[in-house]
Nucleic acid binder design. Sequence first.
DNA 1: GATCCCCCCT
Length: 713
Amino acid sequence: MCSVARATGVGVLQLMMNRGLRLDQYALGGALRECSAQHRLLPGQQLHALVYKSGFDGSAAVVAGLVDMYSKCRMVAEAVRAFATVPPPERDGNCVLWAVMVAGHARNGEPVRAVRLFCDMRSAGVSPNQFTFPTVLTACAAAAEAAPGVGFQVHGCVVRSGFGGNAFVRSSLVEMYVKCGDLTAARKILETREDGGSGDGGNEVGWNSLMAGFVRGGRANEALSLFVEMRRRGVDEDEFTYPSVLNSLAAAGSVAEGGAVHCSIVKSGFGEGYVHIGNALVDMYAKCGDLESAHGVFDHMPSRDVVSWTSLITGCARRGLYEAALHLFCEMRATGVESDYVVAAGALSCCAGLPALALGEQVHAGSVRRGLDAFVSVGNALVTMYAKAGCIEEARQAFDAISHRDAITWTALIVGYAQNGRGRESLRLYHRMVESGARPDYVTFIGVLFACSHAGLEEEGRRHFDSMERTHGVAPGPEHYACMVDLLGRLGKLSAAAELLDRPGFAPDAAVWKAVLAACRVHGATAGLAERAAEALFRACPGDAAPYMLLANSYAASGRWEEARRVRRLMRRRGVRKEPGWSWTEVGGEVHAFRAADRGHPRAAEIYAKVEEMMERIGEAGYRADLGWALHQTADAAVELAHHSEKLAVALGLLIAPPGMPIRVFKNLRICGDCHQALKLVAKVYGRVVVVRDAACFHHFGREGICSCGDFW
DNA sequence: GATCCCCCCT
């Protein structure tokens, strides 16, 4: 009877009961185990009812099965209730019941209660065995922050109880010390053996743990030498060994060694059928920048899961290939692979990079359906995605929906407000962040200083710049200096900006020099500062047209036309070409891309007619072409300006975007001064909000005819 | 009768 019941399940047990047959604890236990293994709650609950009916609710062995079933179905409160129904004398005679209860808490994010339960168990006089220790040590590892030192005490308990030689216990001890950050103690476990031998040659699990610990701690080279040592000592590699090895090679960027390990994986037969190893290979190649090999491994994998796709997708994203990444993401969904929170966050950050608002909204909706928006990393990606698409209100809503905010959440919105020209709100949020106890980091201060600079708050900017290292322990980097130069430059304090550049211990990078040139462009080149910045940029990024254009424009700004022409000639002589400017706009989920004077769009004729109308109407409102921004100083300069890519994109927006909707345009270069002036008037004359995200910042052109950047960028 | 180690993200 028992064997039949074990092989079948709830239905048959029910039938047997109805026929008046008595169930025994083995039949119930077997059926419960099946539910536990498959995490199936409903049949488990039906079995619970049968346990009651057949009078086994006081049996420690049967209740152990119930507790295990509930905890594996993530119903820890039910597990506790079942546990409490066993009377103490029964309970304390059964070490398994305690073990599953400890494991249940550890598995369900309650490691501290798991450890406390282990203590209760010992107080009750129950002796732990070789099964109990791995469970409680896992809990100690998870509770390392809340209850430091408790793992060490349990280690003492292991030694006294004589289970220190058990392979499971030993590897759990290694893992516990690794998770507590004491890699030396972990290493010591592997070096010593109870039986006096030297080193734990048979315990590959422990070696894998230690290696993974080195990788997680950013100590890739030590992880690799551990792998070499493992081989020397004859420790068997298993399917868990290779992912850590590949991970450390990825971190070290050693694609050649990666290829060698790939070979030995193939030779050892681990190349097929181990999806984790395939994933680690894809990730290794992708992180080393070899996308071709990553694709090759991916294409030959016998089966792929969401991690395989994620490795490839983030590999593309890391190289800025957002479109390719999003294409893969859509392909993944088309093949029926469900998103998890990691790939959702990754896809959203690709949407932010392009940006692709419509697809981002789809991913958002899909994440809500799957409950992935509850993960803080998805929430953070949503904030960033909306902010980078210029939808700052939606970014705010995404921020408000996150219940447990981390430093990245705060930073995402602080930076978002700053970039979107809402400096005051950005700074208010920063103060709330500090009050909440979250620790601002390097990126937070980029946002804060960016906000000060765009709001023109010199005093506050200087205060934050000084406080970041003194109060928050964050050393300022080039981005922070660039913001300060921007702030001082915006206020016309070019000599104060120049002073900053000469601070001891600081080496300005290209971004800082570009900020200097941008300030010179607005206020005119003075005292050789523009020349100094341009020279530094010519050296740092030869072939980049931006410094030539900025320098020429800064001469033009102070009326030095001849010098401006000289710079343009120099640029041509050196063969430096302006990177082609692109603008794109998304209407109804479709992306339209334009280059200057582009006639490739199917509705080009209408678009050009709209541009003509646009220029006429803003001309009536006072627009005059700013010919200094034209590349060719010819008679057609005004026409050249009128056909800049951002003007074409806006014209299309006026034609086909639903009335009242903001027109959003994205640009790979900085917006030119003529377009900036023109779009301010377009927004005013047509009563339409226009948002341009360019390479430097956002420009929200409001209906009042002013821009959020304060005419400085 | 239950227990340990791996891949993608922040």
